[in-house]
């Protein structure tokens, strides 16, 4: 059973090794002659006016939160579907209730226009 994951292990090892080889090769073989101008942040022509860290708009956060919620909702559906024959009608009702509660949130988000990008 676990043997089925051997290709994944090989892939991980190759990906990890390749990353190290590329970084090490460029570190060892590259010519490094840094000076103050080369090491500064890139701005076209003038000295940097602001810090390089830009603040994200808070609306990305809202989208991410909504994504997390529906991601978890979908994740709960998998064991439900697999165990559907064992848990019977009660399990079906339960999941419908679960989905309904989240549907309320979905309707709220839709009504409020949280899913629209301005």
């Amino acid at each position: 059973m676990l043997e089925n994951y051997f290709p994944v292990l090989v892939l991980l090892a190759i990906a990890f090794g390749l990353g190290i080889v590329i970084l090490a090769a460029s570190y060892l073989a590259g010519i490094k002659r840094p000076n103050a101008v080369k090491r500064s942040q890139y701005e076209c022509g003038f000295d940097p006016l602001t810090r390089i860290r830009l603040q994200f708009d808070v609306r990305y956060y809202l989208l991410a939160i909504l994504f997390v919620v529906f991601d978890i909702e979908a994740a709960f559906l998998f064991p439900w579907a697999v165990a559907f024959r064992d848990i019977g009608f009660l399990g079906f009702v339960e999941m419908m209730l679960f989905l309904f509660i989240l549907l309320v949130g979905y309707a709220y988000a839709w009504k409020k226009g949280a899913l629209e990008w301005e």
Partner: peptide
């Protein structure tokens, strides 16, 4: 079932706070 309520609170809270 409580988990769904927690998720609902999280969703509505995020909308109220950030929208």
């Amino acid at each position: 079932e409580i988990a769904s309520l927690v998720l609902l609170v999280a969703m509505i809270g995020a909308i109220v706070l950030t929208l």
